[in-house]
Simulated scan of single mutants.
Amino acid sequence: MKKFLSILIALTLLPAMGPWKSACEGEVACALGDRSYHVRAPDGWDGETPMPVLLHFHGWGRQGDLIVKHTRIATHTRSRGVLLLAPNGLGRTWDFWRAGSADVDFAAAVIEDAAKRYPIDRSRIYISGYSFGSAMAWRYACDNGTDVAALLAISGSLPQDTECATMPREVRHVHGLDDTVMDFPMGAGGDETYPVALWRGAFECGSSTAQGSYKIRPFLAFQRTQWSDCADDHTVTLDVHTGGHFIPHGWIGWQLDELASQTPRYP
């Protein structure tokens, strides 16, 4: 009788756990052909509700296992109901300089494979990256950005004269003026808005609006410039700081909150 009751209780709990099943999560990579990626579900997820997705490309020399435990990335997705996907680059790097990169196809396949394991909200697919990973995120948005709700780029980009076949709905880019690894793309005459010139042109944006300074943590201030009068409701946001080459504390979570029309918070 006790065994029967245990089985009955287990069966009644199955619907609450949801229809998904994933044998890989966290530092255990998900195999995808001859490649792999890492995934981290948010804390307190009910097992059924479709989740926004943040696909984040790691920096040079890294892999996705770092991303899914990174305090400046995973901490913020886990507390905001966002599914974090972290593909592994071949040779711990990415092929982003030219169109037609196989890494774009791989990253798109990562999203589709994850969708078989978890319910995702396809209207909120965000692409992100840091350093070389940020340039790869730009490449993905440039080559396969039709279904990308927002590009969240950190300290890395493509040349501003790159021709893009597709576009995301929104672009948010952060870069440090003192970056000496992937140098701040300063425009002619000291134009500090040049890092997003590609997207401003692609979106047919008009004049910019200075949003002023804001801080997520007391030790770093961002100067925000935004272009909101672009064609087809596209938006470009540029955050500039005086620091170097790093992922700013709280920046990813701040953007996710704003994209969800919520009051930004830290962490």
Results as ranks from 00 to 15, higher is better:
262 Q>L: 15
9 I>T: 03
140 Y>D: 06
6 S>E: 07
170 E>V: 09
207 S>Q: 14
27 E>G: 07
79 S>H: 07
22 S>Y: 14
105 D>M: 05
192 E>Q: 10
51 M>A: 05
233 D>R: 15
64 G>S: 07
37 Y>M: 10
28 V>D: 10
161 D>P: 07
195 P>N: 05
57 F>P: 01
128 S>E: 06
51 M>I: 01
218 P>T: 08
210 A>V: 03
147 D>Q: 13
166 T>M: 15
60 W>L: 15
98 R>H: 09
254 W>C: 15
114 A>L: 01
239 D>L: 04
210 A>R: 11
204 E>R: 04
123 S>M: 10
154 I>W: 05
10 A>C: 07
65 D>Y: 04
140 Y>H: 11
126 Y>I: 09
179 D>R: 05
208 S>Q: 13
224 R>W: 08
245 H>D: 12
149 A>I: 06
44 G>N: 06
226 Q>Y: 09
131 S>L: 12
126 Y>N: 00
233 D>G: 14
191 D>R: 10
25 E>S: 13
249 H>F: 09
1 M>P: 05
101 S>K: 12
80 R>I: 02
197 A>V: 02
92 R>M: 12
252 I>K: 03
166 T>D: 14
116 K>H: 07
165 A>F: 11
188 A>M: 14
59 G>T: 03
51 M>K: 04
204 E>D: 05
198 L>S: 05
11 L>D: 04
232 D>I: 04
260 A>I: 03
39 V>W: 04
189 G>V: 10
59 G>N: 12
106 F>V: 01
252 I>M: 06
115 A>C: 06
81 G>P: 00
95 D>T: 04
40 R>F: 05
92 R>A: 14
50 P>K: 10
99 A>S: 14
145 G>D: 10
30 C>W: 01
